[in-house]
Amino acid sequence: MTNAWYLYVFFAAALVCAGLLGLLGKRNLIKLLIAIEVIGKGVSLLLLSTGFAKGHILTAQALVITFIVVEVSLVATALALIINVYRHTKSLDVRNLAKLKG
């Protein structure tokens, strides 16, 4: 069982890493959101495979479905924000969003 778990977690970690790198390096707002989605894929794979390895696949399945519902809400909100940003700046470049400084 652990063998299979190892494989899934390996890929989940790779997905999360790819997403984080994209979030750090990309400048297009939609690309940033896609990177967030990739992180989400990694996390849902991690959750489901953990349940699979423990023999708790039904619970894990319920968690993943809830996670997907959360993701839809999040993506809808984020895309609405992006469209509003675009109406203001006519661009999707994150560098145009530099008026506030961290």
């Binding site: 979030l23 390895a53 203001h88």
Partner: peptide, 30 residues
């Protein structure tokens, strides 16, 4: 403009935060 910018930055960082939380939950669940 400021509100939208702040909200998007907030969203991006907050999502990373909740992903870490969920990863921690998965470890404990496992």
């Amino acid at each position: 403009h400021d509100e939208l910018e702040a909200a998007f930055k907030y969203l991006a960082l907050s999502v990373v935060g909740s992903s870490f939380v969920l990863a921690g939950i998965a470890v404990i669940f496992g």
